[in-house]
Simulated assay, not measured.
Amino acid sequence: MPHHPALRLAAPVAVLALTLSACGGSDDDTSTDSKKTTQPEATASPSKESSGGELATGESAAGKVKEEDGTVTYDITAAKVDLGTEAEAAKLVQDPADAKGMALAVAHVKFTHKAGPALTTESDAGDATTIWADGRRGALLIGASDDAPGCEDPYDVESFKTGDSHVFCESYLVPSNAKSLEVHWAEEDGEPYIWKFPSQ
């Protein structure tokens, strides 16, 4: 699906793209103000070739994406999830009540171009990334991770060819008291690959 850069500038705050009822929520934990990063130690591991399933820390999956320039095969690894605070989440939505009991989670996913054409337009590979908390999908926040440290904006990647790697991030609101976080990535109509992270 093509991107429309003009839409990214339409609002000064992130756009809440999914209903918050999809991920539950609680207002039990409002005391923390510091960001937590869930970053397991990366370990070298060959790519998993089968369609979907749970992957070990540091393990990559091979996935195909139909890009504008043609089908590209990527090695995909969820590197970490940054978990923010309720106060930070409230600043990202138009109505702070939408973020009550919620925190911003940013998934950092590394994509390495393994086969297929070099891209002359932005990659759609990151669009298949979702974040789940305690078994429920979070609420997508469009634009919230554009300037996050360590994240690259696909619009700024002018070429993406075999051997190149880029980190694309996706941001979701999840319950601030979630016990576990999962990063899911799936091919179109495929089963998701799943990386699990503790929430703190």
Rank of each mutant, 00 (worst) to 15 (best):
H3I: 05
H3R: 15
H4D: 15
R8A: 14
L9H: 13
V13C: 09
V13K: 14
V13Q: 15
A14M: 01
A17C: 12
A17W: 05
A17D: 12
T19H: 14
L20D: 04
S21Y: 12
G24N: 01
D27F: 02
D28T: 11
D29I: 11
T30G: 13
D33Q: 13
S34V: 14
T37S: 15
T37P: 06
Q39E: 15
A42P: 06
A44T: 12
S50N: 09
L55E: 04
G58H: 07
E59C: 01
A61P: 08
A61Q: 02
A62H: 11
A62I: 09
V65I: 13
V65R: 11
K66H: 07
E67W: 06
E68A: 13
T73M: 03
I76A: 02
A78N: 05
A79Q: 15
G84D: 11
A87Q: 13
A89E: 03
A89V: 02
A90V: 03
A90Q: 15
Q94H: 08
G101R: 08
A103T: 09
L104A: 09
L104T: 09
F111C: 03
T112H: 04
K114F: 00
G116Q: 03
G116Y: 07
L119A: 07
T120P: 00
E122W: 07
E122L: 10
S123Q: 01
A125Y: 00
G126T: 06
D127P: 02
D127G: 13
A128H: 08
T130F: 07
I131V: 14
I131L: 06
W132H: 10
W132E: 12
G135T: 05
G135C: 06
R136D: 03
R137I: 07
I142L: 14
G143Q: 08
S145H: 00
D146L: 14
C151N: 01
D153S: 10
D156M: 07
V157S: 03
S159E: 14
S159H: 12
F160H: 04
T162N: 11
G163P: 04
S165I: 03
H166E: 05
H166A: 10
V167H: 05
F168H: 07
C169A: 06
C169R: 03
P175F: 02
P175L: 00
P175K: 06
N177A: 14
K179V: 08
L181C: 03
E182Q: 15
V183N: 04
W185T: 01
E188R: 13
E188G: 05
E191D: 15
Y193K: 02
Y193A: 00
I194R: 11
K196F: 00
P198R: 01
